[in-house]
């Protein structure tokens, strides 16, 4: 496992917010998933320090939390980019050439699935059907959807985000 570059140490200001999230759900049944969602919103991902804090706070074994985090693709152990790219690999997108879109993204960004670019701008992930099969193949960048794509459109799309003011 590669080293965590997120600085998610529990003495940073987010730690207090995490404690509040845990306290809010402490006595609720089935609290784990909502807590993980909110914690991921706070930190961008779920590193071991965060999972340990949740484990202690909710009194749920760390092994169980890790099992849940690694089961659902929505949760991530690795930091995500400012722009989260999701390539749909659902059946329709797959047969319409999602693989070539994915390959192009890997090539242009220089990262593999699940990774984040060095500058922290883009992360690349695959997902199952996002419900836009009519537009296949589809990718999502944060909340924006790009449909009926071809591989040669990728470069332009990436540039658009690179040029966006931070």
């Amino acid at each position: 496992m590669s080293a965590c570059k997120c600085n998610a140490h529990l003495d940073d200001p987010r730690a207090e917010k995490l404690r509040q999230i845990i306290t809010k759900y402490r006595n609720t049944n089935g609290a784990l998933i909502p807590v993980l969602h909110e914690a991921q919103e706070l930190y961008g991902h779920l590193p071991i320090e965060v999972q340990k804090a949740i484990s202690e706070g909710l009194n749920v074994p760390l092994a169980e939390i890790y099992g849940v985090v690694t089961f659902y693709t929505q949760f991530s152990l690795m930091p995500k980019g400012k722009f989260k790219i999701q390539v749909c690999m659902g059946t329709a997108c797959y047969v319409k050439g999602a693989n070539s879109i994915l390959d192009k993204l890997k090539e242009k960004l220089g990262v593999d699935i699940g990774d984040c670019t060095e500058d922290g701008l883009f992360s690349l992930d695959v997902c199952r059907c996002i419900g836009a099969c009519g537009l296949a193949p589809v990718i999502m960048i944060n909340d924006e959807v790009y449909g009926t794509l071809t591989a040669d459109q990728i470069e332009g799309i990436i540039r658009k985000y690179q040029e966006r003011p931070v």
Binding site: M1, P61, L62, A63, E64, Y66, G67, T70, F71
Partner: peptide
């Protein structure tokens, strides 16, 4: 480990073909 010993250091991680029983964070 979980229900009889209450230690719960082993669990089922990942999913599908990659499912593995292991401690947290491998």
């Amino acid at each position: 480990c979980k229900n009889v010993q209450g230690t719960a250091v082993l669990d089922t991680n990942e999913r599908g073909f990659k499912t593995i029983v292991s401690p947290a964070f491998h």
